[in-house]
Design a protein around this nucleic acid. Structure first.
Lengths: 332, 332
DNA sequence: ATATCTATTCGAAGCGCTTCGACGCTCGCC
DNA sequence: GGCGAGCGTCGAAGCGCTTCGAATAGATAT
């Protein structure tokens, strides 16, 4: 592999000049720059990442902590990750993959200066990673909201507002008795906050609008979802509006409604909270609040890069929910 | 951050001794080692990854190239990735996330010595990344099989054998007319080889057993899957055995069969090719050939580490399919 | 007591890059 | 014609770690 010295020799300049020409940190005459670029191309030179990291104290890598466990909507995770990687690349950064439970790996990565910054997904209310993050000297941003977010930079969809929006929409459509089919039980047990926040927003807005609201966690399996639908229809036959915050259960819920002879949207109106492609891939195109996973991932990267650049950023940033009406809702 | 020199000073030894004590590359007396370990613990020392990479020409990072695009079973991708990350960690390596289409990023990572080795997922027949891989000095292993795999290290499920196994099983159960519902059309168009290999194996074995076999790609959406099922039942009413090689379409196929009044397994026997958890999560526990994604990912890491260690490994390794009988198949 | 080993430990030379201070040159100005 | 001011470039000092050859000390053999 050619080194910066080979480039310097070929371009007949010093190594520092090559370095400055490539980084742009000092002015270099056009002629010299051209010679250097030519030498770089000719040799196929690539700076050695380790050497650069050592000399500059910057690795140009950001760490991404992903959850690799059950109960989560895996496709959503991938959308987040895709957003993060894509945006990171636009900032000329690479992404190091770390896993939820690997606290040792996290410490190695931060203390060993492998990463310049961290993006943390699927944050729980009382997350074991947070102490490590605050202790490390790298900036980090969380996707999701922990119990106590003071001093932390967070970005997320405003799930509480999403819950409120859905309830308000169902009220506006003339429904009087509604239900939230929420995240799987294990997500609630883990106190991943978005599940609770949706529920709270939905409950409160339903109350404000004088709706009768049922709130039930919903497993992601067909059998589990069927059970929830069966129980709901049996116990609360008056329910005419559903808000489904569970991407994986959604198709099963819709199937089961059909099997019970309930049509969507005429017998039951359904609003989903899920990524747009999922909303469009159902039997009926869903009226839905978009879960903009890739956008959030990209935003997290933007925020963390801003902090790396020394900018003072807002602590927490919640994206307003956007409801798109499609064919799964109708006036009563 | 404390450096190796701080550790050496505190332990009253030279830096080289610290280095040898930590790496184990030369014998160090028990007493000295203990003092060093104590100093390390006391200071919270972590070696600087960049410095280590520079001095040793090893980054202890492996690159993982994942597809972030449509038509693929995202959960399967995550299982692969999880297997890779987990096993990499066991080998004390980190994982750098690279994306399918980012050829520049791939070159930066290899030529810049960011990674010691590469694992490539979802390989296409004629993959644009292969030339870069063969040119780079890092070993790589592909998960999947390209057109021409000579000189490459590959690992995959033996999809052709899986197709044969399924056909043979349906024949053994007494079915005379069968169908393969395969991967989504876009996967075939991309010539990702596993789709073709399953089809070939199924077709050949069906012929050997004197079965009438229909071979159809199957979209992953409900509407698409319904269409395929509807058409199949209409055009080939004699079909009594199905082999579904499409994780995402599977629940929709099963739903649609039920909606047509066909029971599983009595009217139609169904064998799936999917991860075990998916097979178990259907309405009926599926007789299925396991797609051991996490295992394959881990295996890929093992192979790449073996090559890093200088071992001569087999070029291509195909895992034999394992069929587990559950409740979706029955004798005719 | 001296010479010979072995078991440990040390010193120093890089790995390839960035960055700081300094230098030399050209230019415009008085 | 000489001065200061930039601009563009260079040289050298590290960044923190690994690794090679060599030195040291204690133990064993003579």
């Amino acid at each position: 592999m050619p080194t910066i010295e080979d480039v310097a020799r070929l371009a007949k300049v010093s190594t520092s000049t090559v370095s400055y020409a490539l980084s742009g940190k000092r002015p270099i005459s056009a002629a010299t720059r051209r010679r250097i670029e030519q030498a770089v191309a000719e040799l196929g030179y690539r700076p050695h990442a380790g050497a650069r990291a050592l000399a500059s104290a910057r690795s140009e890598v950001i760490g991404l902590i992903v959850p690799l466990r059950s109960g989560i909507d895996v496709p959503v995770i991938m959308q987040f990750a895709g957003g993060v990687v894509t945006r990171a690349r636009e900032h000329a950064h690479n992404v190091l993959l770390l896993t939820q439970d690997d606290l040792v790996g996290l410490e190695r990565a931060t203390d060993g200066s492998m990463v310049d910054a961290l993006v943390v997904m699927d944050v729980e209310a009382d997350d074991a990673r947070i102490p490590i993050l605050t202790r490390s000297r790298q900036p980090s941003v969380l996707i999701g909201l922990p119990q106590n977010s003071s001093g932390l930079t967070c970005v997320d969809l405003d799930f509480e507002a999403a819950g409120r929006t859905a309830a308000a929409e169902l009220a506006a459509l003339g429904h009087r008795e509604v239900a939230l089919l929420g995240a799987p039980p294990e997500v609630f047990e883990r106190h991943t906050s978005y599940a609770d926040r949706v529920m709270r927003g939905f409950r409160d807005a339903a109350a404000d609008h004088g709706l009768v609201a049922h709130l039930v966690p919903c497993p992601a399996t067909p059998a589990g979802a069927y059970g929830v639908v069966d129980a709901l229809l049996a116990d609360s036959p008056g329910v005419s509006g559903l808000f489904v915050h569970n991407e994986r259960a959604l198709p099963h819920v819709l199937s089961r409604l059909r099997e019970h002879g309930r049509t969507v949207p005429d017998d039951v109106a359904v609003i989903a909270l899920c990524p747009e492609d999922v909303a469009l891939a159902q039997q009926v195109p869903m009226t839905a609040i978009d879960l903009p996973a890739a956008t959030l991932g990209g935003l997290a990267v933007d925020m963390v890069m801003a902090r790396l650049a020394g900018e003072q950023t807002v602590e927490t940033r919640l994206l307003a929910p956007v409801l798109t009406t499609r064919e799964s809702t109708a006036r009563r």
